[in-house]
Design a binder for these strands. Structure first.
Lengths: 148, 148
DNA sequence: TTATATTGGTTCGATATCGAACTAAAATAC
DNA sequence: GTATTTTAGTTCGATATCGAACCAATATAA
C-alpha cells in the first residue's frame, strides 16, 4: 500500500466519521437532558441482548475501558434507569438490571428517533441503507480483527 | 417510515459508529501522547485547505461549538504546533497558522498511519473503499441537509 | 453620532473519557 | 491450606466536550 492510496481510505473514514457524528447528535436530541449516546446504548443492549450482565461484560461488549462503563452505569443508576444488584455467584461482581423507567425511556427514545429520521428516510431509502450494510460489516470485521 | 424500518437504519449507523470508533483509535495510536483526533484534524485542515483562518471558521468547518475549538487550538498552541496571531482586519479575531513543527508532525502521522493500516488495506482493497464512497457521501449530505 | 445589537473569543461549570492506582474477592500455585 | 496472582469494580487525576455567561470590538439603528 503506497502513500498514494491513503486518500481513498481517508475519504471513507472521513465520511463515516461525519455520519457517525451527525447520527449521534440526532440521537442525543431525542434523549432527556444530560443523557448521551452511551447511556442509551447500554439501555438498548440490556433489552436487545439481556440484562443481568456484569459491568465488565458490558464494557467488553462496547469495547470501552471498564472505568468508562462504571461512569456510564453510575449515570443510569442516578436516573433510576438501571439497578445494580450483587452477583450471587461472585461477590466481587455486580449484575446490571434495567428498571421499568429505563425500559420506557428506551422505547420512547426509539419512537422519537423514528420521527426525527423521517426527513432522512424519505431521501435515503431503506433499500439503499440495506445495500450498504454488507460492505460496512465486512470493513468493520476486518478492522476489528486487525485490532490485535 | 414505519417502526419496522428502524432496524435497517440502526444497523447502518451502528456499523458506522463502530468503524468510526476503530478508525479513531487506530489514528490516535499514531499520535504523540495526549494528542487526539481533533488535534490532528485541525492540523490536516490547515494544510489541506489553508492556514490563517479564524477559530470560528474552523469551528464551523468541523461543526463543533466554538468553545470546543478554543480548547483544541489551546492544546495545539501549547505543543507549538500552531500559532495564533492577531487578525489584521478585525481586532476581535485571530488567525491560526500552522508551524513547521505542526507540519512535520502531521506528515509523520500520516506516514505512520499508512503503515498501521497495512493489515486492513491488504484485506479491504482500495477499490472496495472507493466503491463505498458515493453512497456514504450521499447519506452524509442528506443527513447534513436535514440538520436544519 | 451616540445607543443598541451582534459577533469573535475566552472563561466557567457540569459532565465525559480513560489510564493508573487501589481494594476486595477469587483462582492458582506450591 | 497458605501464598501469590488474577480479576471485578471503584477512585483519582488529567484532559475533553460544550452550554451559559462574559468581555471586547464591530456593525446597525436612531
Amino acid at each position: 500500500m503506497g502513500e498514494d492510496d491513503v486518500p481513498n481510505y481517508f475519504a471513507v473514514f472521513n465520511e463515516i466519521g461525519i455520519i457517525a457524528q451527525l447520527a449521534r447528535a440526532a440521537m442525543e436530541d431525542q434523549l432527556p437532558d444530560g443523557m448521551i449516546l452511551p447511556h442509551f446504548s447500554v439501555l438498548n443492549h440490556l433489552i436487545r441482548v439481556r440484562d443481568g450482565q456484569t459491568p465488565l461484560v458490558l464494557a467488553r461488549a462496547f469495547q470501552v475501558p471498564k472505568t468508562s462503563m462504571t461512569h456510564t452505569l453510575a449515570g443510569l443508576g442516578r436516573r433510576g434507569l438501571i439497578e445494580m444488584r450483587a452477583n450471587p455467584s461472585d461477590a466481587r461482581s455486580k449484575c446490571v438490571w434495567i428498571t421499568v423507567a429505563g425500559r420506557r425511556l428506551r422505547n420512547q427514545a426509539i419512537a422519537d428517533l423514528v420521527e426525527a429520521f423521517e426527513p432522512v428516510a424519505t431521501r435515503f431509502s431503506k433499500e439503499r441503507a440495506e445495500a450498504m450494510l454488507p460492505e460496512l460489516r465486512a470493513l468493520r470485521k476486518i478492522m476489528d480483527a486487525a485490532r490485535d
